[in-house]
Each structure stands twice: as structure tokens, then as C-alpha cells.
Amino acid sequence: MKTNRLGSSDLHVSAMGLGCMSLGTEEARAAAIIHEALEQGINFLDTADLYDEGRNEEIIGKAIRDRRSEVILATKVGNRRVPGREGWVWDASKAYIRSAVKESLRRLQTDYIDLYQLHGGTLEDNIDETIEAFEELKQEGVIRYYGISSIRPNVIREYVQRSGIVSVMSQYSILDRRPEETVLPLLAREGISLIARGPLASGILTDHGRSKAQRASYLDYTEAELMALHEQLMSQPPLTRTLTQTALQYPLADPAVAAVIPGASSLEQLRQNIAAAGSPPLSAQEAAAVRANSKANRYTLHV
């Protein structure tokens, strides 16, 4: 599988990574998916301490324990569980980040994290303190590089201007083209990569996604618009490829995008995604057809 350099780092990630959130908690099944991904050339695994209350990290750690050198491992921090309370609270403090990374390392059974990402962020955070935490962890060799996972342009701009991030993870797909407005041009200018999550839009942008398109809405799409777009992308020239191929290749057509990270809850799903990601890049004519048929969504909050 093709690899791309992640920003200014020396990490070269597979063009399709594995978003691990949907692996589930059945250890044998999840491990089989991870091992198949590695065998098929995927080297980029993305998780978070939030997923399944840390169980996701534990499963990944066990699965790659004897193959750590083959993996570019990414996880996230910022959502803190408070004993005795349901759910999570946001905590981007230096003290919490330095504490949380130790727990992630323990669960992942490793002594370093390739890409440590802030799992959100607001302008109300003490951003300088947050950056200081990541920089210290990098200097100590606990993490190799750091990034941010966010859909907020105002927060992304602050980290681009003030920190040493090498990547921004953001939702980006044919149905969610918001990064094209401001984020992708900014990252391209600064030599920072976008990691595109949700490229299949919860399964809508797949060959069998018609039933999933029958929903009330998706961003600014109505159900009728989703159904019409699904049909157009499945049948309209010059898109003479599967919808899954079109959907995974569309974000990768932007040079600022280093990887797409669809999830997989089964081996069959993983193999279908790998086959689609291995298809030829979209031609300029194909990309233009996608843009002509879909909406150039705009950010209305946190701009």
C-alpha cells in the first residue's frame, strides 16, 4: 500500500489507516482485524484513551505486542474520566496530559507513542500549557510527534500558529467537505498533514449504503438529497468505479491529506476498504464530478 509522509515528521503512514474505535471489545475478533490490516500493508493504527474506557488501547497493545516495530501508533488524550461520575470531562491541562500518557503507555504495552493527539480543544483552554505538555513528552522520548483531532477551524489555527503539530485529524468526506474551505489550504501552506476520519460517512458512502442513506439528515443533507447523491455517485459517468473506491480516494486527492482512516468491525469490511483504497487515484474529471454533485459544506460554528 502507498505511504505518505505525515507533515514534517519522519513518519510515513499508509494511505489508508485503521480507525480502531469500531473494533469492539471481543479480543480475538479485534486482534484478527488488526493482524489482517498489518498483513495487507496498513501500518497506521489510530485509537484513543476514550474508546471503550481504555479497553480499545488494551486490545491493540496486546495484538501488536510482538509487532510494535511494524506499527505507527496514534492515540489521543483530553477526555478525563472522573471516579464516581458518569461520562467524561474535558481536561487539556499539562498535569492531566502527563498523567494520562502513562496510562496509555501501560494499556498499549509500549514505551513510546508515535503520534499523540489532543482529542478536541477549545479557545478557553490554556493552550500554551497544553503545548508545553506535548513538547516535554516529545523531548523525553515518550512521544515521537503530536497533533490535534478537531473540526474547529479557530482551534486548529491556534495550534498551527503556536505549536509543532505535524497533523490535524478531522472529519472529511464527500458528504463533509468543510475542511476544503479553510483548513486544507492552511495546512498545505504550513506543511501539516490532514488525517481524514469518517471518509465513508457512517457507511452511507459505500456500495451497500443506500439503506443507511435513508435517514433524517447528515450535516446539511436531507434524506432525499442523500438518496439522490448516493444514486448519482453509483451510476454517473465518469465515475466508473465503486462508490467505496470513490469515497476513499476523494479525500486522498488533496495533497494535504496523508491518510484516510475508515473503521472496520469485521474482516470482510476491512478487506473491502483495503481493496477500495488500493484503486487508482481519482482523475481530475472524476474529482470535478464529485464536487459538482455534492455540497461544498461550510463551517458555521467555531470559525
Results as ranks from 00 to 15, higher is better:
Ile204His: 03
Asp52Val: 01
Glu103Tyr: 00
Leu123Cys: 06
Leu115Arg: 05
Gly54Ser: 05
Leu108Thr: 05
Val82Thr: 10
Ala256Trp: 05
Ala292Gln: 14
Leu108Arg: 03
Ser294Glu: 09
Tyr172Pro: 01
Gln40Lys: 15
Gln285Arg: 15
Leu239Arg: 11
Gly7Trp: 00
Leu184Ala: 07
Val71Glu: 03
Ser193Glu: 06
Arg271Met: 00
Arg85Pro: 10
Ala256Ile: 02
Glu231Phe: 13
His230Val: 07
Asp176Thr: 12
Asp10Thr: 14
Asp52Phe: 09
Ser283Ile: 07
Val290Phe: 10
Glu103Ser: 12
Arg215Gly: 10
Glu135Phe: 02
Tyr96Cys: 11
Met16Arg: 02
His12Tyr: 15
Asp49Arg: 11
His230Asn: 07
Gly209Phe: 08
Trp90Leu: 13
Asp220Gly: 04
Leu11Val: 01
Arg144Lys: 13
Arg215His: 12
Arg67Gln: 13
Gly263Ser: 14
Asp125Met: 10
Arg5Glu: 02
Ala74Asn: 11
Ala289Trp: 04
Arg178Ser: 08
Tyr250Ser: 04
Glu124Leu: 10
Tyr172Cys: 02
Ile97Pro: 04
Tyr116Leu: 08
His119Cys: 11
Leu105Asp: 12
Pro255Asn: 12
Arg291Met: 12
Gln139Gly: 15
Pro179Ser: 08
Thr222Gly: 09
Ile33Lys: 05
Thr246Val: 15
Asn297Leu: 13
Ser14Thr: 08
Gly203Arg: 00
Ile261Thr: 03
Gly198Asp: 08
Gly54Thr: 05
Glu223Cys: 13
Leu137Lys: 02
Ile34Met: 06
Leu118Gly: 04
Leu23Met: 11
Leu248Phe: 10
Ile174Tyr: 01
Ala37Pro: 04
Ser14Asn: 04
Gly191Met: 03
Tyr112Ile: 00
Gly203Gln: 00
Arg67Ala: 12
Glu223Val: 05
Leu200Gln: 10
Pro262His: 00
Arg215Ala: 12
Leu248Cys: 07
Arg152His: 14
Leu123Val: 08
Ile131Val: 11
Leu233Lys: 06
Glu124Ala: 14
Glu132Asp: 15
Trp88Asn: 14
Leu243Asp: 06
Pro262Leu: 03
Gly17Thr: 03
Glu140Cys: 01
Gly147Glu: 09
Thr182Pro: 06
Leu105Ser: 09
Arg55Thr: 14
Arg157Ala: 14
Met169Ser: 12
Asn273Cys: 07
Gly54Met: 06
Gly78Asn: 09
Ser9His: 08
Ser104Ala: 08
Ser149Val: 06
Gln285Pro: 02
Ile148His: 07
Gly19Ala: 11
Gly147Ile: 09
Arg29His: 11
Asp207Leu: 10
Arg98Ser: 06
Ala256Met: 03
Arg80Gln: 12
Arg271Cys: 00
Glu268Gly: 15
